[in-house]
Write a protein that binds this DNA or RNA. Structure first.
Length: 428
RNA sequence: GGAGAGAUGGCAGAGCGGUUGAAUGCACUGGUCUUGAAAACCAGCAUAGGUUAGUAGCCUAUCCAGGGUUCGAAUCCCUGUCUCUCCGCCA
């Protein structure tokens, strides 16, 4: 949520900034509602003031043993007027709130302008794609040959876009998650957290998946008796970031750095026909997520360090990748600035997203009411939130299969993973 | 699943329907004292919104959430959520 004060003081600048995303802010509508809000709020508060004053006088009169009946009668229709004004105010406030919640975040100056993925800009390149002296197979064929990737069973058990993994492949995925968690906790200073995989609507509102992106989520009506509704998490960002919702941290408690390994569930509505083969786009996948909650002054630096932590995993696995900064047309709804890490996939002869690292400034914190007490001013301040994949485990598995494949169909195990694989040097 | 208790400021914890934004303690900030610190003592200390040139004043809201009763609700009524205790079931 954008700071309402900014919307009041310089809506033109906000509108121009959002325009870069292709978002048209209805300035007239907003200002009209703001004017109404102001008038109704003043009116309501005046009526409340009058009611309070009169009620107080009645209390005092009663304490002195005076006759309060005339005073009560003098109140007249004040209550009705107040109800009326309050009702109108609430309606206008709701309309404003809706606009606030549906408005994307303002972009950082460094975000390049562009319309789509095509316009993202490469920031850096790491590693050299390997030269194969045989015809490379993609991860689906490799997985099938290993007897480890079974899409047919998953389709039978559940449906399309699910996978069942077996044997050494299932183990390799587990090894990857363990490896990532250990690196982030032991070398990068993150606290590991285990979180619920189902969340309530308030949490999703806080991290801004709701109200606009409900169609991307799996919703669960847990029972017919109570009408509680939960959603399967699309990313650990939701439960982990919401740790801070409605909290006021002491200055010495921040920055907060969390890492969590969770499954992620995405309906992938609107992506039918895209990446239908293999593990790239599934309804369920594993991810190790990094989350940081920091003072505003540290937000930008935190994005760089968090992205570096994700890169460290790729480097330790010796997987070639590139870092891109997302353009205004491709960046996420709540992001202020965002880098994607794209790993080299030889079978696709291209780089594919394996991590997305976002800085939200105070956009999510304002929705969540996540604050810390500034030790200098003594006043509560909104935190800055950040998150990034460190990494998407399923896609990392894909990258390892394809980049570490051998002519005979076996897969060499990257050295850093061998301790997690009982010392195995290869599988297959 | 059954029975009961509860939800109040950063934390703990009072609070007969009327001048309660809310006692008290802790924490925090400033001061006195001290060579320094501790202790003691004094003072201050909620958040959000509106108005405003204003971090000044004034006004409004907020005691889990949403409704209701009332001239007036932290206090009474209803609904929901969450927490705790006991019993049952269970990985």
């Amino acid at each position: 949520m954008i700071d309402p004060k900014l919307l009041r003081s310089d809506i033109a600048a906000v509108a121009a900034n959002l325009k870069k995303r292709g978002y048209d802010l209805d300035v007239e509508k907003y200002q009209g509602l703001e004017e109404q809000r102001k008038a109704l709020q003043v009116k309501t508060e005046q009526l409340q003031n009058e009611r309070n004053t009169r009620s107080k006088a009645i209390g005092q009169a009663k304490a002195k043993g005076e006759d309060i009946q005339p005073l009560i009668e003098a109140v007249g229709s004040l209550g009705e007027q107040l109800d009326q004004a309050r009702h109108e105010l609430v309606e206008v406030q709701h309309a404003l709130e809706t606009m606030h919640l549906e408005m994307p975040n303002v972009l950082h100056d460094a975000v390049p302008e562009g319309n789509s993925e095509e316009d993202n800009q490469e920031v850096s390149l790491w590693g050299t794609p390997r030269n194969f002296d045989f015809e490379v197979k993609d991860h689906v064929d490799l997985g099938a040959a290993l007897n480890g990737m079974d899409f047919e069973s998953a389709a039978k058990i559940t449906g399309s876009r699910f996978v069942l993994m077996r044997n050494q492949l299932a183990r390799l995925q587990r090894a990857l998650a363990q490896f990532m968690l250990n690196v982030h906790t032991q070398e990068h200073g993150y606290e590991e957290v285990y979180v619920p995989f189902m969340v309530n609507a308030d949490s999703l509102l806080g991290t801004s998946q709701l109200p606009k992106f409900e169609h991307d989520l799996f919703k669960i009506d847990t029972s017919t008796e109570d009408n509680r509704q939960f959603y399967l998490i699309p990313t650990a960002e939701v439960p982990v970031t919401n740790i801070a919702r409605d909290e006021l941290f002491d200055a010495d408690q921040v920055p907060l750095k969390f890492v969590s390994h969770t499954p992620c569930f995405r309906s992938e509505a609107g992506s039918y026909g895209k990446d239908t083969r293999g593990l790239i786009r599934q309804h369920q996948f594993e991810k190790v997520e990094l989350v940081q909650l920091v003072p505003a002054s540290e937000g930008e630096a935190a994005l760089e360090s968090l992205t570096g932590h994700a890169e460290a995993i790729l480097q330790k696995l010796n997987l070639p990748y590139r870092k891109v900064i997302l353009c205004s047309g491709d960046i996420g709804f709540g992001a202020h600035k965002c880098y994607d890490l794209e790993v080299w996939l030889p079978a696709q002869d291209t780089y594919r997203e394996i991590s997305s690292c976002s800085w939200f400034a105070d956009f999510q914190a304002r929705r969540m009411h996540a604050r810390f007490r500034n030790s200098e001013t003594g006043k509560p301040e909104l935190l800055n939130t950040l998150n990034g994949s460190g990494l998407a485990v399923g896609r990392t598995l894909v990258a390892i299969l394809e980049n570490y494949q051998n002519a005979d169909g076996t897969i060499t195990i990257p050295e850093v993973l061998r301790p997690y694989m009982g010392g195995l040097e290869s599988i297959g």
